[in-house]
Amino acid sequence: MAFSKEIPPYIFEHNNSGIEIDIITAALAHKGHTLKPVYFPLGRIPYAFSNKLVDAVMGDIGVNLKSQGGFYAKAAVIYDNVFITLKSSAISLKKPTDFDLLSVVSFQGAEKRYPKWLKKVKEQDRFYGVSDQLTQVKLLYFGRYDVVLSDRYIFRFFAKKLKLMHGLDVQEVVEHKLTIDKPMDYRPVFRDKNIRDDFNFGLNKVKESGEFERIYSKYISL
């Protein structure tokens, strides 16, 4: 199954762990399946599926994979994406025109998922999509970009890491919740319908047993 490269606390590539990997592993295990993660830059995940390099992907990254033989499952996790600015910049984000003249850095494909906010930014070359989450945080704190669109837990993880790496007095930030993330945007895609069904069954069991919450709690405190 194709996953993005390192996205703590959801994906730790070095030891095949994290919130998303642990939940998908547990869900598949209910019907005897073993997860074997393969890592790609986020934007290459649909390519990996379309070219049959993998049997499944963590999500379609804005590319409809039904035409490529994909069967969509229930979402294992939903990223809590927010627009983040430095408090010192005093930027107010409430409507699309508030992004005029601002530069935005986010994950690859974000402009497809949030066209209301990012379409114009992308068209005017003020958007930078990069899968390296630490780079996103650096670009904000070092003043290269005005806004980061990121999952709040991912951003906090890397802000702490940046502080430890560079001894920075990390500035306060403001989270602007302008998006409502939909489960359908984060559905894993399987090539085999039966395995998709097995995954959905297992995911329900993981949630019913309380294991879902235990996995989240294990990583959110990091």
Rank of each mutant, 00 (worst) to 15 (best):
A2R: 05
I7W: 14
P9A: 00
Y10P: 07
H14L: 09
N15A: 08
N15H: 15
N16E: 09
E20T: 06
I23K: 08
I23F: 11
A26H: 04
A26D: 12
A27F: 11
L28V: 02
A29G: 03
G32E: 07
H33F: 11
T34L: 06
T34Y: 05
L35E: 01
K36M: 02
Y39V: 01
Y39A: 00
Y39C: 02
F40P: 01
I45S: 05
Y47Q: 12
Y47A: 09
A48Q: 07
A48N: 06
F49H: 06
S50D: 14
N51G: 03
K52T: 09
V54L: 09
D55P: 11
A56V: 08
A56M: 13
D60Q: 15
V63D: 04
K66F: 14
Q68P: 14
G70W: 15
F71G: 03
F71K: 09
Y72V: 03
A73L: 11
K74R: 08
V77A: 10
Y79T: 02
L86R: 13
L86A: 09
K87L: 13
S88T: 12
S89R: 11
A90Q: 15
K94C: 05
K94G: 15
T97A: 12
T97P: 06
T97Q: 14
D100M: 12
L101M: 12
L101Y: 13
L102Y: 10
S103W: 12
V104Q: 08
V104K: 07
V104Y: 06
V105K: 07
W117P: 02
L118Q: 00
K120F: 11
K120S: 14
Q124C: 04
D125H: 11
F127R: 01
Y128P: 00
G129V: 09
V130G: 04
Q133M: 12
L134Y: 10
Q136P: 10
V137Y: 05
K138T: 10
G143V: 11
R144S: 11
D146M: 05
V148D: 01
V148Q: 03
L149W: 02
Y153D: 01
I154N: 00
I154S: 01
F155M: 01
F158V: 00
A159L: 04
A159F: 01
L162H: 06
M165N: 10
H166F: 15
D169T: 02
E172P: 13
V174P: 12
E175M: 12
K177V: 10
L178M: 03
T179K: 09
T179M: 12
I180E: 15
I180Q: 14
K182D: 13
R187S: 08
D192G: 01
K193R: 08
K193Q: 08
N194K: 13
N194M: 09
N194Q: 14
I195Q: 05
F199I: 01
N200K: 01
N200C: 05
F201V: 00
N204V: 00
N204M: 00
V206H: 04
K207V: 03
E208F: 03
S209C: 11
E211D: 14
R214G: 05
R214P: 07
I215W: 08
I215M: 06
L222M: 12
